[in-house]
Simulated scan of single mutants.
Amino acid sequence: MPTRVIVWGENVHEQKNAVVRKLYPDGMHATIAAALNAAEGIEATTATLQEPEHGLPKGRLEETDVLFWWGHAAHGDVSDEVAERVQEAVWSGMGLVVLHSGHFSKPFKRLMGTPCNLTWREAGERERLWLTARNHPIAAGLPDHFELENEEMYGEPFGIPEPEQTVFVSWFQGGEVFRSGACWTRGAGRVFYFRPGHETYPTYHDDNIHKVLVNAARWAHNPAPRVADPNAAPNVPVSAALEPIEQRGETLHEEGEEGFR
């Protein structure tokens, strides 16, 4: 069965900014989905902020293996209900790949439990991404480093929990560095944050970026059955085989005494 992906896009800049519209005439979400669909074993569809329930009704998320999320100008317009729905889907086993300014999105901040703040500068600077985990699946097929001629700078400190693994670190012309590819586990789901992707630059047309996105989709996919209710804490009765030590001790003592008789 293919890895079923939804690419969620805020779809605001594409409608308001001529530069973005020229770079991504069908939207960044469509460009990302096309790159994923070009890879074997991935089926990607899209959803946007403007759709009912932001295109993410509960039933659709239940049938999704990995959700990609790009947001920037309208984080506050995402409903709390949908943000919670995404959070619980990740807890249940859905993968989540958060892109660029999605670091400030409601689902990501909920899952991280931290401010997810950072320093930034939009100046069209060169970004060099270095592999810091050569054998990680997300790094498969990539060189030790690659460059984007123009990107927005994100700099440390980055207000996230310490990643379980950092796959990429970025260097910018201004001298800043940044943890640009970070992995976590949340419940039964895997989360990957990937920094590049400012809307006014052709980042999502880059072949190395496509490799990262495809690798991330495959890594984040958990093939195990979903956890039915990630919030549940069921009260499971103690079986006879696991009865309290005191009771087992008394039984053994009685048997011992019987044996001495």
Rank of each mutant, 00 (worst) to 15 (best):
R126E: 00
R126M: 01
R126G: 00
E127R: 06
E127G: 04
W130Y: 09
W130K: 01
L131Y: 05
T132W: 02
R134I: 05
N135D: 14
N135K: 13
H136G: 12
P137R: 11
P137Q: 13
I138G: 10
A139T: 12
A139L: 09
G141M: 05
L142K: 02
L142Y: 02
P143I: 10
D144G: 13
D144I: 14
D144V: 13
F146M: 03
F146C: 01
E147F: 00
L148D: 00
L148Y: 01
N150F: 11
E151F: 02
E151H: 03
G155S: 14
E156F: 11
E156M: 15
E156D: 11
F158P: 04
F158T: 06
F158D: 03
G159N: 13
I160Y: 11
P161V: 06
P161E: 04
E162K: 15
E162L: 15
P163G: 05
P163C: 08
E164H: 08
E164G: 09
E164Q: 08
Q165S: 09
Q165T: 12
Q165D: 13
F168V: 08
F168W: 12
F172H: 00
Q173H: 06
Q173T: 13
G174Q: 07
F178N: 02
F178T: 01
F178K: 01
F178S: 02
R179A: 12
S180V: 07
G181P: 02
G181F: 03
A182S: 14
A182R: 10
A182P: 04
C183H: 11
C183S: 10
W184Y: 15
R186F: 14
R186H: 14
A188D: 14
F192Y: 11
Y193F: 14
F194I: 08
F194R: 00
F194Y: 07
F194S: 00
P196V: 14
G197W: 06
H198E: 02
E199Q: 15
E199I: 11
E199R: 10
T200I: 12
P202G: 07
T203S: 03
Y204I: 05
Y204N: 02
D206L: 06
D207G: 03
N208G: 00
I209G: 01
